[in-house]
Computed example of a mutant assay.
Amino acid sequence: MISVRWYLLWYLLLAVLLTTVLACITQSGFNLAAIAALTGGVAAGDIAATIWFDLTHFGFTYAPIALVNLLVAAVLLHFLPLLRRYWLAAGLGAVLLYLMLLIINIIAPMPTLIAATRSNTGIISMLLCSSAGMLSYVWLLKRRKLYA
């Protein structure tokens, strides 16, 4: 009989949600910074509207990327328990996202699919979002084992 651990799926989905929200806010920040450089400033209402727009529209584009990224990382964590250290898991999430971004930028016909990844600062910011998702996943796993 196969035993399914549903909590692993829920933890993964929570990590994907965190990663997606952080990445959308990061994407909005880079877009708003580019607009502010051109116009001299952005109103607070426009900032909130842009963040909300990116959460509701860009989130659907980024969520599958985050899901594949964190799913591969979760599978690696399952088979290589040594990677369950926080700093290794964070690095794994970042490296896997970087590899995915390289593949996506090769496949996508436009210069870059994610505007924030056009600069080194943007790439690092997006990698940190992925690392935060992996850290939350590992934290939830360790928390469950502590209280189980």
Rank of each mutant, 00 (worst) to 15 (best):
A90P: 04
I106D: 13
L83A: 08
L82H: 13
V75Q: 08
A94V: 01
I107C: 12
L96T: 00
Y98H: 07
L77K: 05
I103Q: 13
A89E: 03
A74S: 11
R84Y: 05
L101V: 04
M100N: 08
L76W: 09
P81S: 10
L102A: 09
G91C: 06
A74H: 03
V75N: 05
L97H: 06
R84G: 03
L97P: 01
R85I: 09
F79R: 14
A74R: 03
G91Q: 05
R85E: 15
P81I: 06
Y98W: 11
G93L: 04
V95P: 01
N105C: 05
L101H: 06
A74V: 00
G91I: 00
R85L: 13
I106M: 13
M100P: 00
Y86P: 10
L92R: 02
I104P: 08
P81L: 08
I106L: 14
F79H: 14
I106T: 13
L76S: 05
Y86I: 11
L80K: 10
L102Y: 09
Y86L: 15
L99A: 09
V95W: 05
L76Q: 06
I106H: 14
L99F: 11
A90M: 12
I107N: 14
L97W: 06
V75L: 14
L99S: 02
L102T: 00
F79N: 09
W87E: 13
V95H: 02
Y86R: 14
A94Q: 02
R84D: 07
L88N: 04
V75I: 13
R84L: 06
L83M: 12
Y86G: 13
L97A: 04
Y86C: 09
Y98A: 11
L92T: 01
I103F: 15
L97V: 00
Y86A: 15
N105P: 01
A94T: 00
G91T: 00
N105S: 10
L99I: 01
A74D: 01
L101G: 01
M100V: 00
L82N: 11
L101I: 04
I104F: 12
G93T: 04
L76A: 11
A90D: 04
L80C: 12
R85G: 15
L83Y: 08
V75H: 07
I106N: 12
I107H: 14
L80Q: 12
L101Q: 10
I107K: 15
L102K: 09
A94N: 04
L92G: 01
R85N: 13
I104D: 10
P81D: 09
L88F: 09
G93M: 04
H78N: 11
A74W: 03
I103C: 11
A94Y: 05
L82E: 13
L92Y: 02
I104A: 10
L80R: 12
M100E: 14
L97C: 03
A89I: 01
Y98Q: 04
R84H: 07
I106K: 14
P81M: 10
L97G: 01
P81T: 08
L88A: 11
L82D: 11
L96W: 07
I104M: 11
L102H: 06
L102Q: 09
Y98V: 00
M100H: 12
L88C: 05
L82I: 10
L96R: 00
L97F: 09
L99D: 01
L101F: 12
V95S: 05
L88P: 02
I104R: 08
A89W: 03
A74T: 02
L92D: 03
N105T: 04
I106F: 15
I107G: 11
